[in-house]
Simulated assay, not measured.
Amino acid sequence: MTSFATALLDWFDRHGRHDLPWQHPRDAYRVWLSEIMLQQTQVATVIPYFQRFITQLPTLRDLAAADEDIVLALWSGLGYYRRARFLHRAAQLCVERHNGELPRDFDALSALPGIGRSTAGAILAQAYGLRFPILDGNVKRVLTRYHGIAGHPGEREVEKQLWLRADEHTPAERAADYTQAIMDLGATVCVRTRPLCNACPMHEACVAHRDHLTAQLPTPKPGKTIPTRSTIMLILRDAANRILLQRRGAQGVWAGLWSLPEAHDTDDAWREAQARARIDDAQPLKPFVHVFSHYRLQIQPLLFDGAAPKQAIADNGDLRWCTGAELPSLGLPAPVRSLLLALPEPTEEHH
């Protein structure tokens, strides 16, 4: 075992995280679910989502058989909904091709939707104890600093170097613990800003620590400004306190989720609203901004209270009038869910 792995495992035994919910039991389904949830999301945020998800869909077969709306509702708030869709589809493929289990073969596992090289390695190492390297964001940061590797880790040549280092350090014994250990070190000690170098078991051999480069490494991605777009969200509320929801198309952000009808400007908003219900007034609510990875969305909610549904749009596949009680079982984007939960009470004249 390399001295890197030995030092890291000694540290893990004393300071690592041993009580995460996906570690008990550490089976393939739970490890996989946690790995997908942890992409772009912190452990503290993921834990309650993981527990809620695993309570409702405790096995891979339960996930495969679940309705997509249920899967998206359980995911709602974690963002990057494509991850949830890939998870759902991969579970169905495991039932079709792999007897309802995640395959132990690297190629078969990484052929499933949403499972890249690092996620496949993490599942095989943690669930099955097999020796496979991983390279998530935390591990990239640890190895970039330890070896003093300059250049943005997303660049092909830099990533290639990092994979070689990751493989070189991964031990044959205790692969599951090592994998958790290097992720823990990145998440709790070798953090992005102000790393706790004195608490790190590798600081004496770390190039970034030696050369005072921890603030410069990993090299940041070349910056670019993200554009701002704007939309008006229509909240049509009828006399029974139901809200009109619309399922979004299969492409673009929030694909396939239930959301609110949208419009480009006020005239367009009135046209859209009148096509769906008889309305008499509109109340602008407080605008807010939602930030995606590639643009900012300025949202102006427009509330039409006392809307009378038109017969022509009785519930179809992509439009439905929903009560507040039905919302938790639907996949809704987090900002839309928050907006609906914070709606003002209907005014008396509209009761």
Results as ranks from 00 to 15, higher is better:
residue 146 Y to I: 09
residue 42 Q to G: 01
residue 119 T to V: 12
residue 88 H to G: 05
residue 47 I to A: 02
residue 292 F to K: 01
residue 231 T to H: 04
residue 145 R to M: 10
residue 253 V to R: 03
residue 88 H to E: 08
residue 131 R to A: 11
residue 234 L to V: 06
residue 150 A to L: 04
residue 30 R to Y: 13
residue 101 E to T: 08
residue 143 L to T: 09
residue 271 R to D: 14
residue 272 E to T: 14
residue 273 A to V: 13
residue 229 R to T: 11
residue 54 I to L: 14
residue 159 E to V: 01
residue 163 W to R: 10
residue 298 Q to E: 15
residue 84 A to E: 09
residue 235 I to Y: 04
residue 296 R to K: 15
residue 6 T to C: 01
residue 271 R to M: 08
residue 272 E to N: 12
residue 209 H to S: 06
residue 246 Q to M: 09
residue 211 D to I: 02
residue 79 G to L: 11
residue 109 L to A: 05
residue 267 D to C: 05
residue 48 P to H: 06
residue 251 Q to W: 00
residue 17 R to E: 12
residue 338 S to W: 09
residue 200 C to D: 10
residue 2 T to R: 04
residue 260 L to C: 08
residue 236 L to G: 05
residue 116 G to S: 02
residue 289 V to Q: 09
residue 211 D to L: 14
residue 311 Q to M: 12
residue 200 C to H: 03
residue 33 L to E: 06
residue 69 D to A: 10
residue 307 A to Y: 02
residue 224 K to P: 00
residue 238 D to K: 04
residue 313 I to S: 03
residue 121 G to D: 06
residue 243 I to H: 07
residue 3 S to F: 07
residue 42 Q to N: 03
residue 244 L to D: 06
residue 254 W to Q: 04
residue 68 E to L: 13
residue 140 K to Q: 15
residue 309 P to C: 11
residue 28 A to M: 01
residue 119 T to W: 08
residue 340 L to M: 13
residue 105 D to F: 07
